[in-house]
Write a protein that binds this DNA or RNA. Structure first.
Length: 577
DNA sequence: GCTATGGATAGCCTAGCATCCCAATGCTA
């Protein structure tokens, strides 16, 4: 699909126009880019079927942008974009990924210091050329250098949620080949790590040559690193690498175990094998020269005296000890989830109406969906005030009535994602909060508070009797921003005391809480909820990422409150109010 | 540049914060 390619160019155009301080156009381009990113159909198909008119029917895309999309589809480029880029030849997207760097700063740095990309920027920062510029200073220079360092830490890693669809598609395609007998994704993708270096796929086949030939000639391949009968390695358009290995059927279990990792987990597993006079490697589990385990991972773990364990646990975080004692957790599964309690509608941040969101939730088999639009502090999102919340409630009641008449076992819940202000107060008054089914509170501003103050701020919000859930509790954005400073242990104690639930936010960029904090939360006896924070109906499927993260944090069904049926869930919310 | 209506033109995009320089600007939510 070329949707993402064009969207990226439109975003860059928006950046260049912002740089020139053009009014309104940047937002128009951004809106169009967003539409393309969200689109489930491909623009090629739309254009083929309905031409320019078809494109113009998309929301936020009018005559001009439609023509630019057409130009891209026909020629592979957009002249307008190239003109802008020629005028200011900078990597606008790369540079503005740095927190605190916007188009204007990019422009000034280009004009004064000729900075075109991250490399130039770092060089200028390190030789203290930035601080002395007008409009810049010591702090800005320091922030820029810190931003680059942060980016570098996550460089070359991809978000699980970004790559998973492509990996699944390629996996299915390979699986459909008659030459492929078995297939499994391995590595960090199988362990569902939040970011991925590269992808490993394992297959069993009698005719590896044909499989490899197919693999390296897929349309999305942009580079072939290597090609051989047992291993081939490619890079695909999205920028990440995929390794494909062909193994004999008798080694499939051990190879899968080996290539799933983690490395640390494997070291311990092999050591255990050794203590039993066995040898474990990617080819099999052996006693002397005899193979004692075949085909499956389960056999290997069983012979070593353990139950098979889900890949998400294999990080050498005590899972082997637990398995040896027969005390592995029974991890939560996607099918345990009964509903989603954090999503946005077209009342503000979201793309779809409440009814469309509900419709998707019903199709997913949910019992409930909580509508949690932003509240008034977030001006840019047109956050709702108390009066608008009351109006929204009416719409929700009306829809619920409709669902009842239609006989759906489904209910919308009315909530809001309120803001925790600097002083820990909530931006919506208690009278209005009381009318909601439950309220969420989150930090959306002033992330750089000192640790003590931030901790106090969050705890104060938790003391509000109507706040039931803290959304994205640590505020991190993968590859962009570290979590804010706070004393998580203190927050856990407060959550326990005030019966507040911590969210596992399933957005690919957030996955917040992370695995370590999930485990801590579970051990502290604090309940969690897995939400998607969907801004579009398609985002509701991010649930699987949140569930995977929960599994990585050893969470069980009983730890997660949206595994409860509606009635019990409401009891949890009504306990204190 | 798009959308909504008056079908050619108005309306869209705010406010708090940090930083830099001591009133203004750019960035972020």
């Amino acid at each position: 699909m070329k949707n993402q390619e064009v969207a990226k160019i439109l975003y860059e155009i928006a950046g260049f126009l912002e740089m020139e301080e053009v009014a309104f156009k940047p937002t128009a381009y951004k809106r169009a880019a967003l539409t393309l990113n969200m689109l489930s159909k491909s623009i090629e198909d739309i254009y083929k079927k309905d031409g320019l008119k078809g494109l113009e029917e998309l929301s936020g895309i009018g005559k001009n942008i439609a023509e630019k999309i057409e130009e891209y589809l026909k020629t592979g480029q957009i002249k307008y974009y190239q003109k802008l880029k020629k005028k200011t030849p900078v990597e606008i997207e790369e540079l503005t990924t740095i927190e605190g760097m916007g188009p204007i700063k990019v422009k000034v740095l280009y004009q004064k210091l000729g900075i075109r990309n991250l490399k130039d920027l770092e060089k200028a920062g390190k030789s203290h050329k930035i601080a002395s510029l007008f409009g810049f200073g010591e702090k800005t220079e320091k922030n820029i250098l810190e931003g680059i360092a942060f980016l570098r830490k996550s460089k070359g890693r991809f978000l699980l949620g970004e790559i998973l669809p492509a990996v699944q598609k390629i996996g299915e395609r390979l699986k459909a080949l008659k030459e492929v007998k078995e297939l499994s994704v391995a590595g960090s993708v199988r362990r569902m790590k939040e970011t991925i270096g590269d992808v490993d796929i394992l297959v069993v086949s009698q005719s590896p040559d044909k499989v490899m030939e197919f693999f390296v000639s897929m349309p999305e391949v942009i580079k072939i690193w290597s090609k051989g009968p047992t291993r081939s390695s490619i890079r695909i358009k999205q920028g990440f690498d995929i390794d494909l290995r062909v193994v004999p059927i008798k080694s499939f279990g051990s190879a899968l175990q080996y290539f799933t990792g983690s490395k640390e987990h494997n070291i311990i597993t092999r050591r255990i094998a050794m203590t039993q006079g066995l040898k474990l490697n990617e080819y099999g589990l052996f006693k002397g020269k005899n193979r004692v385990a075949e085909k499956t991972e389960k056999e290997i773990y069983n012979i070593l005296g353990m139950k098979w364990m889900p890949p998400e646990l294999r990080e050498n975080q005590g899972e082997i000890e637990a398995a040896l004692k027969g005390k592995l957790p029974k991890l939560i599964e996607l099918k345990d989830i009964k509903g989603d309690l954090h999503c946005h509608s077209s009342w503000n941040g979201g793309q779809n109406t409440i009814e469309q969101m509900a419709q998707t939730a019903i199709e997913m088999g949910y019992e409930y969906l909580g509508i949690t639009d932003h509240t008034k502090f977030l001006k840019i999102e047109h956050g709702l005030n108390e009066r608008q919340l009351a109006q929204q409630k009416k719409e929700i009641e009306k829809l619920n009535k409709k669902f009842r008449i239609l006989g759906f076992k489904f209910q919308l819940l009315h909530s809001a994602e309120t803001n925790i202000l600097n002083n820990g107060l909530i931006d919506i008054n208690n009278k209005a909060l009381k009318k909601l089914d439950y309220a969420i509170a989150g930090i959306h501003s002033n992330f750089k508070m000192p640790k003590e103050k931030m901790t106090e701020r969050i705890i104060k919000a938790m003391k509000n009797p109507y706040i039931k859930i803290i959304s994205h509790p640590t505020g991190r954005i993968l590859k962009k921003r570290d979590q804010y400073q706070c004393d998580f242990d203190k927050i856990l104690r407060a959550a326990k005391e005030f019966d507040v639930i911590l969210e596992i936010n399933s957005q690919p960029k957030r996955l917040d809480l992370n695995d370590i904090n999930i485990r801590k939360t579970k051990e502290a006896g604090v309940k969690m909820i897995i939400n998607t924070d969907a801004h579009h109906k398609d985002h509701l499927t991010f649930m699987k990422l949140g569930v995977a993260q929960a599994r990585r944090g050893w969470a069980e069904k009983k730890d997660i409150i949206n595994t409860l049926p509606l009635e019990k869930l409401l009891k949890v919310f009504h306990r204190q109010t």
